[in-house]
């Protein structure tokens, strides 16, 4: 399976990944609707790109109330898929995610997270510094 990964030491914090994430999903630019987020730290002079890690035992799926079951896994890509119609924004998954990769969508009643663009992540395509990669990893690593 392919996974999205990042090398933070190379990240410059330009947020070009966030821009392409939102224009490719919504045809507009809005970092608050980006599924990948870059956080800058002036304390350690680093920029940290954060997106869904596609955990094997996904705490977000486990946390989603059984009656709701808004989260599922895409069989092809392994991405966590949010059913926006089922989600009630109880935020259980947001609290469960250890990476802050599950977020509330601005001015809406559902969460959202990286969907790997169906297998062709636009953030990876456009990162000018080669920080992001989307590559096959060995089963045993998973």
């Amino acid at each position: 399976m392919k996974v999205l990964s990042a090398e933070p030491k190379k990240c410059t914090g330009c947020k070009i990944c966030e821009q392409w994430c939102t224009i490719s999903h919504y045809n507009v630019m809005n970092p608050k609707k980006s599924r990948i987020s870059v956080t800058r730290s002036h304390d350690d002079l680093m920029n940290y790109p954060v997106a869904c890690h596609q955990c094997v035992d996904a705490p977000c799926i486990a946390a989603c109330p059984t009656k709701i079951s808004a989260l599922s896994r895409d069989e092809n890509t392994g991405a966590i898929i949010v059913d926006e119609n089922k989600c009630i924004l109880c935020k259980a998954c947001i609290r469960a995610c250890p990476y802050d990769a599950m977020k509330a969508f601005p001015a809406a009643k559902h969460v959202f997270t990286c969907d790997l663009c169906g297998g062709d992540p636009q953030c990876v395509q456009h990162c000018p510094q080669g920080v992001l990669s989307y590559e096959e990893i060995a089963k045993e690593v998973i």
Binding site: T12, C14, K15, I16, R40, L45, M46, N47, P128
Partner: peptide, 18 residues
């Protein structure tokens, strides 16, 4: 130490130093 960019910049001329 690391390179830094302003918003939407593919060049990143800014440098973090130590």
């Amino acid at each position: 130490y690391t390179d830094a960019a302003c918003f939407a910049c593919p060049i990143a001329c800014s440098k973090n130093c130590k």
